[in-house]
Design a protein around this nucleic acid. Structure first.
Lengths: 206, 206
DNA sequence: GCGCGGGTCATCCGAAAGGTTGATGTGCGA
DNA sequence: TCGCACATCAACCTTTCGGATGACCCGCGC
């Protein structure tokens, strides 16, 4: 199975290449350290599966790269391999077209299994990720909407309501309304407390 | 050269093992996924060098594990391999007795070189790390005082100025004065932005 | 002694944030 | 088709925050 590795850490790339190659089952046809290279190599090398880290140091991030790869002709499957299991990351990755989402804390066997599953076209989620998604559908009143997460992330980045409103092309009143809903759902009454609560519950990442 | 790998991510561990073993120069004699195991294996396996990640998921963190390993009889060298190059992390690791500090974004050759250098007893710092150290000795005025950090941590926990003032038995005016100094030092103009800046620079933890 | 940084406090004011209520439109599933 | 969640906006009001001052005390180093 032809695999393309995308990670901004050379050590991790080399490690993954060695790990996958040793099985004999996987053939690492290329490596990319940034999003642009990833898209280019995905188009030219035509791998079966792209193993994608979400945290790429500079330039295009993993989600954008995934979206661009899925826009190719007969695109490969994309399996996200990352450190964090925040709602925001998972949602964006799946929305961008990722066929799998697993954590670096997973055992290697799970990685192999996820690559096989993804290649067959099935969605491959590691247990912690799957349980997060389950909790999300079971308790939708505690979950923030994508818009609310989007706004809360900008708040967490230190932006004012006005800045957020301009960045999202909406009115300041709307930002305040969304934030009021966020405060209500998280049981807090200030932006800073909301950020902490959201980080604690892994709804966003700082 | 006998190496012990300490990292909480099985995928990274397996990758590093494959990478190091492939050189023929390094012999991975063991792996540990947490600090306690790391100390135990360092004592029983007697590796030449311990390759230590600072971010261990649960239990003892990498700095503490390093300190405990250095307290052993004829301890091995400890080389820190981590993602972040924050002042606080570097200082704590070196203070704990680490002989090397390199980033996961370094090329594999640098990793090999650092292991050799550390084994020979020399300090091995990757270039970005070394430059951070240099900047720190040149610009010590960027550091927050203990009191300022104490207040900023409460702010990061979502407390209001009034709550902080009552928790620290000082007036609200004093809290505001301290915060104004913090904003000035961090180059921001709101509490949320200050929290983000401080977390980014590892001045506080969330 | 004097300067300097740190910690403490106060006042005044404008800007920002938060609470409340109510309204409109859209999409989706029962 | 009827709700319901979501996203959008507005007006009003209170509280909080942030900026600009100025002041006092303490410990430390030159």
């Amino acid at each position: 199975m032809k695999v393309l590795i995308v990670d901004d850490h050379p050590v991790v790339r080399a490690g993954l290449r060695a790990l996958l190659s040793a099985t004999g089952e996987f053939d690492v046809v290329g490596e990319a350290e940034d999003g642009a290279t990833a898209v280019r190599l995905a188009a030219s090398l035509r791998p079966c599966v792209v193993l994608m880290d979400l945290q790429l140091g500079s330039g295009v991030d993993g989600v954008t790269a995934t979206r661009q790869i899925m826009a190719l002709d007969s695109p490969p499957k994309v399996v996200v391999l990352t450190t964090y299991d925040s709602d925001a990351d998972i949602l964006r990755a799946v929305e961008a077209g990722a066929t799998g989402y697993l954590l670096k804390e997973s055992p290697p066997e799970e990685l192999f299994a996820a690559l096989r599953t993804a290649w067959s076209g099935e969605m491959a989620l590691s247990p912690p990720v799957a349980s997060r998604m389950m909790r999300r559908v079971r308790a939708p009143q505690l979950a923030l909407s994508q818009r609310e997460i989007e706004i809360l992330e900008l708040i967490a980045a230190g932006r004012s309501n006005r800045e957020v409103s301009r960045m999202l092309f909406i009115s300041e009143a709307t930002v305040k309304t969304h934030l009021a809903h966020v405060y209500d759902k998280l049981g807090v009454d200030s932006r800073t407390a909301a950020v902490k609560a959201a980080v604690d519950r892994r709804l966003i990442r700082l």
